[in-house]
Amino acid sequence: MTRLQANSLLLLIAVIWGASFTVQKLSGDHVGALTFSAARFVLGALVVLPVAWMEWRRVGGVAGRHWPGLVATGLALCGGGILQQVGIGGTSVTNAGFLTGLYVPLVPLIGLVFLKARPHPVVWPAAAACLFGTWLLSGAGAVDLAWGDLWVASSTVFWACHVILVGHMARATGMPTTVALVQFVLAGVVSAVLAAALEPVAVADIRAAWFEIAFVGILSVGLAFTLQGVAQRHANAADAAVILSTETVFSAVGGMLVLGERPGLVTLAGCVVIFAAMLAVQLAPQTKDAAR
């Protein structure tokens, strides 16, 4: 695979993830957030099951000491997915996409607190810029975010933990596809139990949301995460950081084209500030390494 092909694949992944915000928003017309989360994670698990099974047989299974980490990874994915899905129902796709991106500066901050990993200095101004961008998203007045914005913002803590845990567990086990399968299964089971207890679940409603469930379950959950690992074996790290960050842009474009969302200038300015902060966090370390 050439660098151009890898970058093109990364762009496709960003489009899928960005478009998923619009599809997730539309799913709320048919099923609850917990039901949708359960369906998409279970479907994603079915997509990666054949590859994970071959990987399991080749490597010989997961050591017992790794299971606590796998469970933590699945719970982080479940928490982030549910909170984000609930929040999307109460905010715009544009806001949901950019607020989700707040996990980018959170990753090094969590690493500093729990892993004693010193982050790049750019993290601190980037974190402040993200807070400023969030204020702009709220209208640049008194901080009065919609209830959905607060749910989506809270999901970023889980997403940041998930990013850290996935990288650690993939390296520790040497079985990235199996890690994906286990976390999808766990997230799907937990979401299903919560849905059965807290939401009215009807087969007719699930059938009505079949397209949304299939799109996110197959493409966003099952396919895109797998393709990301394939593409980044051949792509320049700086290219990958920039291209994958554009999912936030595609989420805004999807909201405008499909849902007719028309963000104002102040909201767009907030999006630009958050996007710039995300790029700075990802690209500054790459620039430093390249200069050595």
Results as ranks from 00 to 15, higher is better:
Leu26Phe: 00
Ser92Thr: 15
Gly60Ile: 10
Phe41Trp: 15
Gly44Ser: 08
His66Gly: 07
Ala19Ile: 00
Ser37His: 06
Trp53Lys: 01
Leu70Met: 11
His66Asp: 15
Gly74Thr: 03
Val48Ala: 09
Gly90Phe: 08
Arg57Ser: 01
Gln85Trp: 10
Glu55Ser: 00
Phe98Thr: 03
Pro68Ile: 12
Phe21Val: 04
Phe36Lys: 05
Thr94Ser: 15
Ala14Asn: 07
Arg40His: 09
Gln24Gly: 04
Ser27Val: 06
Val86Thr: 14
Phe36Asp: 07
Leu75Gly: 06
Gly74His: 02
Leu46Tyr: 00
Leu83Ala: 14
Val15Gln: 03
Arg65Thr: 09
Arg40Ala: 05
Leu49Ala: 14
Leu77Glu: 08
Pro50Ile: 04
Asn7Thr: 03
Ile88Ser: 12
Pro68Trp: 06
Ala45Met: 09
Leu11Ile: 05
Arg57His: 02
Ile88Lys: 09
Pro68Asn: 12
Lys25Thr: 02
Gly32Glu: 10
Gly32Lys: 11
Val48Phe: 11
Lys25Val: 01
Leu75Phe: 08
Arg40Asp: 04
Arg57Met: 01
Gly90Val: 05
Val47Tyr: 12
Val48Trp: 08
Ala45Cys: 10
Ala6Phe: 05
Val51Trp: 14
Val31Ser: 04
Val47Gly: 09
Ala14Leu: 04
Leu83Asp: 06
His30Thr: 11
Val59Pro: 00
Met54Arg: 12
Gln85Glu: 09
Thr91Val: 13
Pro68Asp: 12
Gly74Phe: 02
His30Pro: 06
Ala76Ile: 01
Asn95Ala: 15
Val51Ala: 15
Ser20Tyr: 00
Val31Asp: 06
Val86Glu: 14
Gly81Leu: 13
Leu83Tyr: 06
Asn95Val: 12
Leu83Val: 02
Leu49Glu: 04
Gly64Ser: 13
Thr35Lys: 13
Leu70Lys: 04
Thr91Cys: 14
Ala52Trp: 01
Trp56Asn: 05
Ala52Ser: 01
Arg65Asn: 11
Val15Thr: 05
Leu11Tyr: 04
Gly44Tyr: 11
Gly18Asn: 03
Leu26Gln: 09
Leu83Gln: 06
His66Lys: 08
Arg57Val: 00
Leu11His: 13
Ser27Arg: 05
Val71Cys: 07
Phe98Tyr: 10
Arg40Lys: 08
Gly79Ser: 08
Ser20Ile: 00
Ala52Met: 01
Arg57Cys: 00
Asp29Trp: 00
Trp17Tyr: 04
Ser20Pro: 00
Gly32Met: 11
Ser37Thr: 13
Leu12Val: 14
Thr94Leu: 15
Arg57Ala: 02
